[in-house]
């Protein structure tokens, strides 16, 4: 999804290629593609939230949420939420930096974002190990692991994209004019953040 690095077009013009396509929209193709992909991802989360809705609300003999004997670590996950939301700020800062030509800011922002994302993922794994129930323990366990696991997978994908952006940032790619390679992972990262806010609110808090 992040494939379109403007930096590669150095050799353009040396051979006869296709005519440049007419740009018929103000949004650039990769950014639009990312937003549409996110729309699709939101619907995937939507199907998991539908399962949540059926298990918690529609099911006539639904027990409490969480059911008797189950406990979710609201505080730890709350700290984790704060970490993830902060990482959105650093992500935004990274992109603003490269837009102003500040490469050090870009690199620092990306590394901080990456570190916070990793912290989030590790905390999540520790939480799994200590939470005291498994995916097979009633539908509550299934939905809890389903939603947090799906989100965790997206954090992993986001971190992969960010790693790529970071590697390239340290190798001297990106400029105030060309920064799709940061902007697109950044958009994805904000989406991961948004989904976590929804998951945290619905699973842990409400």
């Amino acid at each position: 999804m992040t494939a379109h690095a403007p930096a590669v077009d150095v050799h353009h013009g040396e051979h006869h290629g296709p005519p440049p396509a007419h740009q018929s929209s103000r949004v650039s193709a990769p950014v639009l593609g990312m937003f549409l992909f996110i729309a699709s991802e939101v619907m995937l989360f939507g199907s998991f939230f539908t399962a949540y809705f059926f298990v918690r609300v529609v099911n006539p003999d639904a027990p409490g949420w969480p059911p008797e004997g189950f406990h979710v670590p609201v505080f730890v996950a709350g700290v984790n939420t704060a970490i993830l939301v902060t990482s959105s700020f650093t992500m935004h800062w990274a992109l603003q930096s490269i837009k102003r030509g500040n490469r050090a800011g870009l690199q620092a922002g990306l590394v901080l974002t990456l570190a916070m994302g990793l912290t989030f993922l590790l905390t999540q794994m520790l939480e799994y190990a200590r939470v005291g129930f498994a995916p097979r323990d009633t539908a509550f366990g299934s939905v809890f692991y389903g939603l947090t696991g799906l989100h965790g997978a997206h954090v992993f994908v986001g971190l992969t994209l960010l790693t790529v952006a970071t590697v390239r940032a340290f190798r001297g790619h990106f400029s105030p004019e060309h920064h799709h390679g940061v902007e697109i992972p950044g958009i994805y990262w904000h989406f991961v953040d948004v989904m976590w806010i929804v998951v945290y609110a619905t699973i842990y808090l409400l």
Binding site: G46, V55, G141
Partner: peptide, 28 residues
């Protein structure tokens, strides 16, 4: 994505033993 979701649930129920569709475990 919704069919992806439904097939994930069915696959989890089968492979991981989750209870999305097991009525006596609170599934629906």
């Amino acid at each position: 994505p919704f069919i992806a979701g439904s097939q994930f649930f069915a696959m989890f129920d089968r492979v991981l033993g989750t209870d999305f569709f097991t009525p006596d475990q609170g599934g629906y």
